[in-house]
Write a protein that binds this DNA or RNA. Structure first.
Length: 215
DNA sequence: CTCACGATTAGA
DNA sequence: CTAATCGTGAGA
C-alpha cells in the first residue's frame, strides 16, 4: 500500500496541460491492434466532463485482430449495427453492453475496413478518485478500477460514448511519461468460445501493477 | 417474433 | 459456486 500511495501522489502532480501536450494522435490509432495494445500501457486515459477530470493509467489491455480472430466481434467480416464502428479507421470508441449491466470499452484501431480493436481491461486511478468511488458506490480503492467493467463504471462510460472520437478535447489518451516497467504477455480472458484464437498471447499488462484484473 | 447468451461482477 | 440482467443477433 505504501508504494501505491506514493505512485498516486506523484501522478496527481500532473496537470491537464501536460496531459494534453502528450495526446495520442489519430495517426497513432491507425497502427495494428497488437502495437497499440502494447504501447498504450503506461499511457493515461483522460475524460473531462463538467467540472471534474478523470484520469487513469492504462495497465492492462487486449488486442482483437478482427477478420481472422474468432474471438473478435468482427470475425469473418461480420457487420452488425453494434460493431459497425469497427470498420472505420482507427480512433473511435467501440463500447458495448455485456451481461445486461456492464460496459466493455474498446478503441478501434488500424485502417478503414480492417476492423481491429484494443480492449482496455484495467486502469490505475490517478485523478478524480472521489468521483470514481461515488460512481462505483465503493470506497476501497483496490477494487475501484481493476477490471474491464469496473473501470468503465468508475468513469461513467456507457452507450453515449459509442462511436465517439478517442482523440478529442474531452476524451483522449495521453502518452505516458515513464515506460520503466516490464510488460507481461498472456492469452486473453473470457473468450473460451473462440476455438481457434483463444490461446493467442494477445493480452498485455504491466508487471506487478496492483490494478490488474483478477482472473 | 422468439430466445439464448455474453471480451463480467458481486456475493454466498 | 451461481445469479444478475437486457441488448443483441440469429433464426423461424
Amino acid at each position: 500500500m505504501t508504494g501505491l500511495n506514493k505512485n498516486l501522489s506523484k501522478s496527481v502532480l500532473m496537470n491537464i496541460r501536460e496531459l494534453e501536450k502528450q495526446r495520442r494522435s489519430k495517426k497513432f490509432f491507425l497502427r495494428n491492434a497488437e502495437y497499440v495494445a502494447k504501447n498504450i500501457l503506461g499511457d493515461y486515459l483522460v475524460l473531462r466532463r463538467f467540472k471534474t477530470t478523470l484520469v487513469g493509467k492504462i495497465v492492462e489491455t487486449e488486442s482483437y485482430l478482427g477478420l481472422q480472430d474468432d474471438a473478435s466481434h468482427s470475425f469473418g467480416g461480420k457487420i452488425t449495427p453494434r460493431n459497425r464502428i469497427m470498420y472505420r479507421e482507427g480512433g473511435f470508441i467501440y463500447i458495448y453492453l455485456i451481461y445486461g449491466k456492464f460496459w466493455c470499452f474498446n478503441i478501434v484501431v488500424s485502417k478503414k475496413d480492417n476492423p481491429q480493436a484494443v480492449f482496455i481491461r484495467a486502469i490505475e486511478p490517478i485523478a478524480g478518485i472521489e468521483t470514481m468511488k461515488r460512481k462505483r458506490g465503493l470506497y476501497r480503492i483496490e477494487k475501484l478500477t481493476n477490471g474491464p467493467c469496473r473501470w468503465t463504471t468508475a468513469f461513467g462510460m456507457n452507450r453515449d460514448f459509442l462511436g465517439e472520437s478517442i482523440t478529442s478535447r474531452n476524451v483522449f489518451i495521453s502518452q505516458g511519461n515513464s515506460k520503466a516497467f516490464t510488460v507481461v504477455r498472456t492469452k486473453r480472458i473470457g473468450i473460451e468460445y473462440a476455438t481457434q484464437s483463444k490461446d493467442l498471447p494477445l493480452r498485455f499488462y504491466i508487471q506487478d501493477n496492483p490494478f490488474i484484473s483478477q482472473k
